[in-house]
Design a protein around this nucleic acid. Structure first.
Lengths: 326, 326
DNA sequence: ATGAAAGCGCTAACAG
DNA sequence: CTGTTAGCGCTTTCAT
């Protein structure tokens, strides 16, 4: 229709050199009039898949943030690069590994995101074996040669501990995510590091990561003979459940016990009392992931793995924490 | 490797007739040994896209249920059919429409899901113009010829109203989702239908769909001179916020005011008091959607649009509602 | 029951 | 600057 060959059309459309300005304009105009859009299937047939895969385990968060919020930012950042996000909800890590194996064999994508890394994580081996390049979210001790977004949970939780200690708390508890997650260990390390002078007693209670699990753990903590004066919970909903447990136990937050949420949300702000929280990573994490992914795609073979550091912001202090006399 | 032509391999792999059992087995075995997987790009190049598109507006639910839970069930049901779900988070309905236009032009999918239909919804026209077949979630008055999952919100909310009336409530309020959603109107209709004998005063307060909006609306309702004795809220988090507003206002739920959530969740069960709620649609909706989609794909041209009815289950009565003396 | 070959829409190497 | 053409991996028609 533009009176040129398919090659010229391809060049014009892809901003390749070798087309006169006049021709390029004509081609673009005709394509636009026709409402023409490149067929992604045909395109990826030559160029390889233009997508990054992400399998999330049902019920899990993305490093404490709501999955969809992270994905929204992730997609937004990847869009200009013409990259799509293949999101799948799976039952467990094994299913995620199996999916990555398939995606690799199908050449559906060549980068996958591995969230909530576990110790000795199957997904890492499987993805690598399948010819995929994994981008890990979280601590990287388990993945020496892999690209990663390194979230500084350790520092964040150390700050939480110092904040609580400065309020006079001497018995702090952490209601944590499952222990197989490396992130859990990092949070623990942070709290320990900031309390190792021995003036603060630290109790770590791992859970299964569910709200019910957190509620049960908090109940046990608060009904002990000697109960903690401050409880830190991994997520916003866990912390909300803790508020409720405290209320039912007849304890007044923050006077009887202080509560801190490891991730912020509207729920934290609207609760009574409003929850002192670490900021939500949602948008930042999505953007950091996008940088890690594009960096990995752009990296030449032999380049060192891309590492995108992500610092957790300042604790938002609200009504759920207060000074504590010993 | 199996000593046969590519055509025979294709037949064998796709369970087509015309291959001897021996050959088929040999081909399957070799393919398996090689870890061979069909390339989806190449496949959809001939067969057309094997995916269904779903654009959700950031912050919105999927008919009151958490998006990811619905998507999980949706994907699970579509998997055996070899269909993928293309999930995208967009800023608003206009962006969703624009995306559907693109997806149509790119032949990325030929069915798209249109959740939370609005009155005179742009997405419907755009999707149809782009050659896509939309599957609508919600009331279908706006989409006479389109496939749909018809959720019976009207009946569900009528049941809520009757339940509250039976407890002696005479002033009921609904803190609703935005009015442009057809579902909001359906919920309203249900409440009205069940209260039209005039013994119950009904107040409908539309919100912007956010938790903050719901909290504000509830606060206004509860600080009125004559306040409602029962408040129904569209979602679980909204209802949670309402519990909090009541607490801050000095009202005791359920004695001073009853609260009902339009959608259940762990949060509803763990709240104090636990929230009386309509069941969550998550899994059911995902499965219904899958049936609507596959039905639409299987339908011959000229067949009537696929309609999958979805009834909302029984109200779970918990501690947030109680009888009310006039 | 099997094989040869065309073609889906696109990009890129090469020739002109 | 532009055209010709091969080929990405698969399905499918047509011959055999």
């Amino acid at each position: 229709m533009a009176g040129v060959s398919t090659a010229v059309v391809s060049y014009a459309l892809n901003d390749r050199r070798g087309v006169s300005v006049a021709t390029r304009e004509r081609v673009l105009r005709v394509a636009d009039e026709l409402g023409w859009r490149p067929n992604p299937a045909a395109r990826s047939m030559r160029a390889g898949a233009q997508a990054v895969g992400l399998a999330v385990v049902a019920g899990e968060t993305l490093h404490g943030a709501p999955v969809l919020d992270v994905v929204a930012a992730f997609q937004r950042e990847l869009l200009p690069r013409g990259l799509g996000v293949d999101l799948r909800v799976v039952a467990d890590v094994a299913a995620a590994a199996e999916l990555y194996r398939r995606w690799g064999a199908e050449r559906r994508c060549d980068v996958v995101v591995v969230p909530e890394v576990r110790d000795d994580d199957v997904r890492l081996r499987v993805a690598t074996d399948a010819g995929l390049r994994p981008v890990v979210v979280g601590p990287t001790e388990v993945a020496p040669g892999l690209a990663a977004v390194e979230v500084d949970d350790e520092d964040a939780y150390a700050r939480v501990a110092r904040y609580l200690a400065s309020l006079g708390h001497v018995r702090i508890a952490l209601v944590a995510d499952p222990t197989d997650r490396l992130r859990t260990a990092a949070c623990e390390r942070g709290l320990r590091a900031a309390t190792q002078d021995g003036t603060v007693a630290l109790e770590i209670v791992p859970t299964d990561g569910t709200v019910e699990g957190a509620a049960g753990a908090t109940r046990r903590l608060l009904t002990q003979a000697v109960r903690p004066t401050a409880v830190v919970l991994a997520t916003d909903v866990m912390a909300l459940a803790a508020l409720d447990v405290a209320r039912r136990t007849g304890l007044v937050v923050p006077w009887d016990v202080s509560v801190v949420a490891g991730a912020d949300s509207v729920l934290c702000r609207l609760a009574t009392p409003a929850l002192t929280s670490l900021p939500s990573l949602a948008t930042d994490l999505g953007e950091a992931l996008a940088r890690a992914v594009t960096g990995t795609l752009d990296a030449a073979a032999g380049d060192p793995p891309v590492r995108v550091p992500l610092a957790v912001g300042a604790l938002a202090v609200r009504g759920s924490t207060s000074p504590q006399a010993h």
